[in-house]
Design a protein around this nucleic acid. Structure first.
Length: 804
RNA sequence: GCCGGUGUGGCGAAACCGGCAGACGCAUCGGACUUAAAAUCCGCUGAUACGAGAGUAUCGUACCGGUUCAAAUCCGGUCACCGGCACCA
């Protein structure tokens, strides 16, 4: 850089701040009459390591959109905050003997400083911090509303437990059988757990996806996560009892192919009929083996089928009265469906494997495969199935069978979801205390709303307790309290909320961050919601996104927010890989620190490069040389001032400007930042070929580039003698007519092969175009002696002459 | 296994709705400036063959096939890689 970028960038950052340039106007304030635009980026977890280039990529996309929107005349809300509760901070605090409050404050200061150096146009007056009492007061308030609505409940259950972090984890936090935080193996443990009944919203969460604009892969991931399946429940009588074994299946039409039943090892009917089971010892032994397996072993490693046949307990096929053996096996999960299945080995791969191993009959009911070799899971004609014989369409046969089940009173159609209720408590210190009191007389009672926030008590030793109980349980003054209902002695809940709590509603608080009376003023919510555009990482698409949509839909149902969906549009940025093409990680030593890049090249270069790297949603490796290329580009932009003058460029350059304004305007909008910047690079090459440009053209250029490299563009604007901030000036317009050159180079093909090009006037008529093409010396020589069969012209693009 | 995505020069990548494949950037090479290097500027650069040369021809978007005047793009099949889910009945 020919100028001192660090100084110049600081100068403009200070001026923006002083002018309050990026403050969003609340309803009623000057500026609120403009159309609103709410741009949201995922707020960071303020880790001690500071910012990562991934953060920069995540924020810079919507930064460009926000800056463009402001110049287009919108009232833009582009806020930033900190998702600061959580384990890394707490673990660091324990290790270093510092209080997490102190660690958090320090990290937030560090992040704030780093973010400001990048020159983001955040509205810094609206910062939220999830660990702030005035913030988590409302997180607790929402929990209390959910409790009152019966959506927060307690249950004893087998849970995912991380022995290293000493916390219960949700299914989402223990994917692959590993702890999401420390990557230790998860074990199963029986515990008292708080749940949020997210399954009650499964259907709403699924249906809501129709009304929002999410990238297709994001939508699809959510659909898969919710995992809706349609099928039927069927009741199989247990022989010699009046009990029925209820199962769920997606293929009720294969009911005549059932040759055995399988129950999950934990199925309660086993205990109920233990006295009838002759081999209860074997059963108990098998159950204890299964209980010791981690979720990982059970689902990932062991594909070999195991199980035990129940001696003395059998089921009856309710359609034809056939007696069917029952097995227990761990390939059936207690947590899905009813915890028991009807096995149709001919047409289900898992049942087939099990049948082969245990020598069970296999009855074909769908023709089309060779069931002696493998299960046939395709479509085909129904056989061996009485009234279903001859059906060839799966939908029809399922429908018919479901009707039959209902009319005979042995089952009915039903829907299942893979999504489970959300395990919502952690036994750790650095989280929102769950505002519940356990009263021996009144049961569980929420802390009254006017007593919120229920503050985290100060503590010196906040390491988790040995038995996995919360550190808060050690503070008598916190635990012992009076019941808010009866006034008698009671005990407080000592668990805290998981990290996902605070981030489930933060975007609401941005609209009214200092409100002491409610989570946000209804008028402000009405004005700002929904979030118009939300950008973040793919890794948050299934957890954070689903959780926050759930909270939002609940808040909508109780009338606390005005929209049923929080986010109108969602995009996701791709990863930045290390220079070696691997994922960046400390252990590989391939991490790029954005601060180093700013020190060496300035924030404008960093921003430009990150957007220029490639497809915004795709992963791309970091390249130091690529950074240098962007630096050169910005230096050339800086040089434009010297060759700018009052008037008189060329008609060609004028056309190029119209083209570029159009392209950049469109490309920013579709997040094709790389091609927008490429267009500006192409334009600057052309300007230097011409040798000069007008002052107006230069102004247009820096306006187009301003969202990407705002400091440099402000500086040039000032040099041009313009008063006021470029960031608040108007976005350039273009004339569609002038985006096409007066003469166009058109390709001439013969039999589809390129044989030359001709210059034609814009929108040249077909006859004239062909005439000019044929008179071209080279084309004419090829055409000589040939018969023309067909002539195709596409205006301003191509001429193809087919000859024989 | 299932779902989604991707596959184009030495590299990152472009290419609207099927219409000149490789824009833009990097790297390489050559040149200018310099005592020299760095920086900067100018130029070349998909492959192969022919040509002293301006050039000309052929091939070329993972692979095989198809539709079309015309395919990176559409259709059928195969392979590879990435991401997500996973004994979900």
């Amino acid at each position: 850089m020919k100028y001192n970028y660090l100084e110049v960038e600081k100068k403009w950052q200070d001026r923006w701040e002083k002018a309050g340039a990026f403050r969003a106007a609340d309803p009623g304030e000057a500026g609120s009459e403009k159309k609103k635009f709410y741009a949201l980026v995922e707020f960071p977890y303020p880790s001690g390591a500071g910012m990562h280039v991934g953060h920069i990529k995540a924020y810079t996309g919507l930064e460009v959109i926000s800056r463009k929107r402001r110049m287009e005349g919108y009232n833009v809300l582009f806020p930033m905050g900190f998702d600061a509760f959580g384990l890394p901070t707490e673990n660091y605090a324990i290790k270093t003997g510092t209080h997490p409050r102190e660690v958090t404050d320090r990290n937030i200061r560090k992040f704030t400083g780093q973010l400001k150096r990048v020159g983001y146009s955040f509205d810094w007056t609206r910062v939220v911090d999830t660990t702030d009492e005035d913030y988590y007061r409302w997180t607790q308030w929402i929990f209390v509303q959910m409790f009152k609505a019966g959506l927060a409940f307690r249950d004893t259950a087998l849970v995912n437990y991380c022995p290293s972090c000493k916390v219960v984890l949700s299914n989402e936090d223990s994917q692959g059988g590993k702890c999401d935080i420390c990557h230790s193996d998860i074990i199963q443990k029986s515990k008292d757990v708080w749940y949020l009944r997210i399954t009650e919203y499964a259907d709403k969460l699924l249906k809501g996806l129709d009304g929002v604009d999410y990238l297709p892969n994001i939508r699809q991931q959510q659909v898969n996560w919710i995992g809706r399946s349609e099928g039927a429940f069927v009741n199989f009588p247990l022989a010699g009892t009046d009990e029925t074994l209820r199962i769920y299946t997606t293929r009720p039409d294969t009911l005549f192919g059932v040759t055995f039943m399988v129950m999950a090892p934990e199925h309660p009917l086993i205990d109920k009929y233990a006295s009838r089971i002759a081999n209860m010892d074997d059963v108990a032994a098998y159950r204890s083996v299964c209980a010791k397996k981690t979720e990982f072993e059970r689902t990932q490693l062991v594909k070999e089928k195991t199980g035990v046949k129940l001696q003395g307990l059998t089921a009856v096929n309710p359609l034809n009265g056939k007696e069917i053996p029952i097995y227990i096996a761990d390939y059936v999960m207690m947590g899905y469906g009813t915890g028991a299945i009807m096995a149709v080995p001919a047409h289900d791969t898992r049942d087939w494997e099990f049948a082969k191993k245990f020598g069970i009959d296999i009855i074909e009911v769908i023709k089309g495969g060779d069931i002696s070799r493998e299960a046939y899971t395709g479509d085909g004609e129904m056989v061996n199935s009485e009234f279903l014989n001859g059906y060839t369409n799966k939908k029809d046969s399922i429908k018919r069978m479901t009707r039959e089940l209902v009319s005979r009173g042995i089952g009915e159609g039903g829907v299942q979801y893979k999504m489970k209720d959300w395990a919502f408590n952690r036994q750790r210190y650095w989280g929102e205390p769950i505002p519940i009191v356990h009263c021996p007389k009144c049961g569980m009672v929420p802390v009254p709303e006017d007593e919120l926030p229920l503050k985290l008590p100060p503590m010196k030793e906040f390491a988790p307790g040995q038995g996995g109980e919360s550190p808060l349980a050690r503070i008598d003054s916190f635990v012992n309290c009076k019941c808010p209902v009866c006034g008698g002695d009671a005990k407080r809940e000592t668990d805290t909320m998981p990290q996902w709590a605070g981030s489930s509603w933060y975007f609401l608080r941005y609209t009214d961050p200092h409100n002491g009376d409610c989570l946000a003023d209804p008028g402000k919510l009405k004005y700002w919601l929904p979030v118009d555009w939300y950008n973040g990482g793919m890794e948050h698409v299934t957890r954070h996104m689903i959780y926050s949509r759930f909270w939002h839909k609940f808040l909508y149902d109780i009338g606390a927010v005005p929209t049923s969906e929080p986010y109108a549009k969602r995009t996701a940025q791709g990863l930045i890989l290390g220079p070696d093409g691997d994922k960046m990680s400390k252990s590989k030593g391939n991490v790029v620190d954005p601060n180093d890049v700013i020190d060496e090249y300035g924030a404008d270069v960093l921003r430009t490069y990150i957007l220029f790297m490639g497809d915004y949603s795709a992963a791309a490796p970091w390249s130091e040389n690529g950074v240098k290329g962007c630096k050169r580009f910005l230096e050339r932009v800086d040089d434009l001032f010297v060759i700018s003058r009052g008037n008189g460029s060329t008609p060609e350059l004028e056309t190029s400007f119209h083209k570029t304004v159009k392209k950049v305007t469109d490309d920013y909008e579709s997040m094709k930042f790389n091609t927008a910047i490429a267009a500006l690079m192409g334009l600057i090459n052309e300007i230097f070929e011409v040798g000069h440009l007008t002052r107006d053209e230069l102004l247009t250029f820096i306006k187009l580039l301003c969202p990407v490299a705002p400091h440099l563009c402000e500086e040039i604007n000032e040099r041009l003698g313009n008063k006021g901030l470029l960031s608040l000036s108007s976005w350039p317009t273009y004339d569609e007519e002038k985006t096409v050159d007066a003469t166009v180079e058109v390709a001439v093909q013969i039999n589809g092969k390129l044989r030359g090009t001709v210059l034609l006037p814009k929108d040249c008529p077909k006859d004239q175009a062909l005439q000019i093409a044929k008179s071209d010396a080279k084309i004419a020589s090829i055409l000589e002696g040939k018969t023309v069969i067909k002539e195709i012209t596409v205006p301003n693009r191509i001429i193809n002459i087919v000859v024989k």
